[in-house]
């Protein structure tokens, strides 16, 4: 699967800033909010008034990716989100309680469903093609990518818009913090969309393969990494960049240690959650980072991006959901 365009809104200044992007560690306490653009040039005022932040971020990155690729009518729109549209869900539930389940207004309910981002993109593009949203916790984005790969295998001529979005609201932050999720790592949020196709022309990167694992042992993770590389004729020394989901929380260190020992000896290691915070679809931001690195953008901790031919993204979520992606330069 070849990526021809990539766009991301994140706590970093990433939107429409691939050339000038400078990754800086963030100091927003334990809650990182996205650096959002002025949406007025991207979304009609009549539409934007009903959109919550996640929808705006998702729609803006989708439009930007499509514009970069020169695509006006994608053959599919595939989205991954773990939390969905939390802001509107919160508004709707609050009104249900306050109004004793009577006199509920439609807008927040309509906008609260998980597939709102994908649906809004389709409505704006007047795109009646395949449209699917995957909600699989920390594998939501990976599942969207797997569906994209299968779709491209079925129909090699198509161009697929694929991405992910998750937002942090005041309510979700309080609840998730109570679960102990952000004690040692900042909470994050973001949206990233990509245009993917089956042929390599005009591509910036190729997603060569994805492996997903649920509640694996460390040996299974090591085997999965090695198998993924071997499947594509590669060894551990062929990888120049490891985008690692490791954080200051040591709960998943045993897994990250194994992966870093397996491929990290020669590769530069970037801990991408230090740049975007912790959220279930943060690997979409990592894929955006991989794409701009493949275009020559040097990240902190790297001496030179031009030698990066292969990158691995590895994420071990505390829920037990693990993913490994192999990316190559085009």
């Amino acid at each position: 699967m070849f990526i021809t365009a990539a766009s991301a809104i994140s706590p970093q200044k990433s939107f429409r800033n691939a050339d000038g992007f400078t990754a800086v560690p963030l100091t927003g306490g334990n809650r990182l909010l996205c650096s959002e653009p002025d949406y007025s040039s991207l979304i009609e005022p009549k539409l934007i008034r009903r959109m919550s932040r996640i929808i705006r971020m998702g729609v803006a990155t989708a439009i930007d990716a499509l514009q970069q690729a020169g695509v006006t009518d994608p053959s599919a729109i595939i989205t991954g989100t773990a939390y969905g549209c939390l802001e509107d869900t919160g508004i709707f539930l609050k009104r249900m309680v306050e109004n004793k389940e009577e006199m509920l207004t439609p807008t927040a309910f309509i906008q609260s469903t998980h597939n709102t981002v994908g649906a809004q993109i389709a409505l704006m593009l007047k795109c009646n093609s395949y449209n699917n949203t995957y909600v699989h916790r920390a594998l939501s984005f990976e599942t969207a990518l797997l569906d994209t790969m299968m779709l491209l295998k079925e129909n090699g001529t198509s161009q697929v818009l694929v991405g992910a979005a998750d937002e942090l609201t005041d309510q979700s932050f309080i609840i998730l913090e109570r679960f102990g999720l952000f004690r040692k790592q900042p909470a994050g949020e973001g949206a990233a969309f990509f245009v993917a196709k089956a042929s390599p022309d005009a591509a910036i990167a190729e997603v060569k393969g994805i492996r997903t694992l649920i509640n694996p042992g460390t040996q299974q993770v090591e085997d999965a990494v090695k198998t993924l590389l071997q499947t594509h004729g590669l060894g551990a020394d062929d990888v120049q960049l490891l985008l690692s989901g490791r954080t200051a929380d040591t709960a998943m260190d045993q897994y990250y240690n194994v992966v870093e020992q397996t491929i990290g000896n020669e590769a530069a290691v970037i801990q991408f959650k230090a740049l975007c915070g912790e959220y279930p679809t943060s690997t979409s931001f990592a894929l955006w980072l991989a794409c701009i690195t493949m275009q020559g953008k040097t990240m902190p901790g790297m001496t030179d991006a031009s030698h990066v031919r292969y990158a691995v993204i590895y994420n071990a979520d505390k829920s037990g959901y693990h993913s490994i992606m192999l990316i190559s330069k085009c």
Partner: peptide, 13 residues
């Protein structure tokens, strides 16, 4: 039409 529903609820509330 979605706004029409919002106006009905607004008037009622």
């Amino acid at each position: 039409s979605i706004d029409a529903l919002e106006l009905i609820v607004l008037m009622q509330q």
